[in-house]
Amino acid sequence: MNNKEEELFTSQESIPGIPETSPQYIGAWWLPFLIFGVITFIFGFPILLFPRQLHGTEEVRKNRENEMHQDKVAKEVQTNEDFGKRLKDFPKCLLVILRNPTYIFLTLGGVIDGMLLTGLSTFGPKILEALFGLTSSFSAVLLGY
């Protein structure tokens, strides 16, 4: 190592590369992490005070299970212990799943939510640029928030 490299190495250890007066200097970068961590604990603590199960949950679960098994195909599947071990059981299993309205609507909701989020994250900054005349970087940051 020559003298110039040694000076550079020792100066980087003692002084940061960007002076505090520079507009590129980021001072308290850790402050948002601290603030959001405290906010998370403040809002998270009351959630810990909720009971594991609400009163009457067990009765509602039993009623829903009975509703599910009122279907003729679902009853047949429930009583058959060998069901699902063969490939020819797949269409019947698919029929049971597709006749469950709760599953279908939750799946459709998730699909639509995913499509909206994907479209917004892909084209949202460009739309903000075009509508409001923002720069591409600012519109991306704005959409990120």
Rank of each mutant, 00 (worst) to 15 (best):
N3D: 13
N3H: 12
E5S: 07
L8K: 08
F9N: 14
F9M: 13
S11T: 09
S11V: 07
P16F: 05
P16Y: 04
I18F: 04
E20P: 10
P23R: 04
Y25P: 02
Y25I: 01
L31E: 06
P32C: 00
F33P: 03
L34W: 05
F36L: 10
F36E: 05
F41A: 14
I42N: 01
F45I: 10
F45V: 07
L49T: 10
F50E: 13
P51L: 03
R52T: 15
R52V: 14
L54G: 12
G56L: 02
T57C: 11
E59R: 14
E65L: 15
M68F: 15
H69W: 14
H69T: 09
D71S: 02
K72Q: 14
V73E: 15
V73M: 06
V73H: 03
T79I: 07
T79W: 06
T79H: 12
K85W: 06
R86L: 14
F90I: 15
P91T: 00
P91Q: 01
K92P: 01
C93R: 12
L95K: 12
I97W: 07
L98A: 09
T102S: 14
L106P: 03
T107N: 06
T107E: 08
L108E: 06
G109A: 13
V111L: 14
V111F: 09
D113G: 10
L116Y: 08
L120P: 02
T122Q: 07
G124V: 04
P125W: 00
K126A: 14
L128V: 00
A130D: 07
A130P: 02
L131M: 09
L131S: 08
S139K: 00
S139L: 00
V141Q: 12
L142S: 06
